[in-house]
Design a protein around this nucleic acid. Structure first.
Lengths: 241, 241
DNA sequence: CAGTGGTCTAGACCACCAG
DNA sequence: TGGTGGTCTAGACCACTGG
């Protein structure tokens, strides 16, 4: 672990235990550098990490202030729109039980839209997966997923019933570079009515997503459709200029 | 402007004009440092900026690759969920005309929930503002906004009819440190039906938002309610480890 | 193995802010 | 004006990748 992450961790601890109280000023970077026996640039990188998390705010000429971050660091910290790694990951510390039910699992040629999203030819087959995710047995989200077959060998029911991301990450050693998401509200379609128990007037919160690998290739296009009354997404946006 | 931003701009130009083609490798940082007559750390900061924008991807041991970013750098680049600065800003390059209509503008004591969000006392008065935003005369979004009166002197109809953010920024010299957002899908309420022309079964996309000043004080709590068929939000999420 | 980006240093100067 | 964080340097070593 790099020094700046280690230092960030120490500072994080001092903020949460009140050593550095809310609304007070962090010691100046030069002093912190002396304390930890590192250069000031290393301290600055550590402080930048805390700023990204919304714990502190640095202003040129006037030091670094400890912010009251209690509001966004509570239960809501799950379901962060940035750093999303799939439902399984989001809910790994949740007491509730997440299960999956396979609605459809097939192979087909991509539509024009999906081929464009996945940056593949129309002749390149894709997996089509529809999974219902249940929380304590109650319908939670319906996921329509498309993945290029050549990138994901060996996909089967057993994988779909646990976590696709785990399979990609641990079994295939694939690494994600990032993703693009688009959030909309939608009217329920027949799938939503059948599997999410949506009534005609129940909205659906949809997250459309393309996930990219480190080599730049898209590995997944998916639409996650959520019951409006069980889920929202949150986001912390920090200015840095 | 710092050198690293200037260099980032030059590199950005070379990527978009094809000097550095998609899927090729960026010259190594040492060479770029030599070319621009700066140290390698400065080049690295420039490349980091491009990585955050999703233009390139750097991997230790293997150089920096130019990504195909055409997909998320097109029209969709408006309505970015990160770096949101109000509708006026989002639509400033849009050919359509944005107008506002004041539905309600009053002063009141905050409810318990709003006082908590704004981190103020129950006895501290707040502005309550409901504005209908129209695009080319058609209902677009309905914004319910609460702001502490003591932070925003002189708010009046003229300001509400143009851009509140402009007023805060240019007239009052207030600077934002960041914001926290929560996105949900909702059923339409009576306001939505009256002003957004929502039918009973039309979903509403709601963005709940708290905006913070540099001193850590919240200056705004708002709920922006959007017609489901006119708006979505997008987000680019880049991994950095 | 050679070559890349990631980290880190020990300085330096500067822009900015409060007093 | 004094003190802060922001930037920048000219090096160095290391971790990691691919061939």
């Amino acid at each position: 672990m790099p020094k700046y992450e280690e230092i960030a961790g120490i500072l994080r601890g001092r903020i949460s235990d009140g050593t550095y109280p809310v609304n007070s000023m962090l010691p100046i970077q030069a002093d912190l550098a002396k304390e930890f026996g590192v250069s000031r640039m290393t301290v600055k990188k550590a402080v930048e990490l805390l700023a990204i998390e919304g714990l502190v705010f640095s202003k040129q000429g006037n030091g670094t202030k400890i912010l009251n971050s209690s509001f966004w660091n509570k239960e809501d910290s799950k379901f962060r729109l940035n750093n999303y790694n799939g439902l399984t990951y989001d809910l790994k510390d949740d007491p509730r039980t997440l299960t999956s039910r396979i609605i459809e699992f097939s192979v087909e040629f991509p539509s024009k839209e999906i081929a464009e999203r996945l940056q593949i030819e129309l002749a390149a087959p894709v997996y089509k997966i529809i999974r219902l995710r249940l929380l304590d047995g109650k319908p939670y989200a319906l996921e329509h997923t498309y993945m290029p077959c050549d990138l994901v060998p060996g996909l089967d029911d057993a994988v779909l019933l646990t976590s696709i991301y785990d399979y990609l990450w641990h079994r295939l050693g694939l690494k994600f570079a990032g993703s693009y998401r688009h959030i909309t509200a939608e009217k329920p379609d027949s799938y939503d009515k059948d599997y999410l128990d949506c009534q005609k007037e129940d909205p659906v919160l949809q997250v459309e997503q393309v996930v990219y690998l480190e080599n730049g290739r898209p590995i997944e296009y998916s639409r996650s459709r959520n019951r409006f009354d069980t889920r929202g997404y949150s986001l912390l946006d920090v200015k840095n200029n």
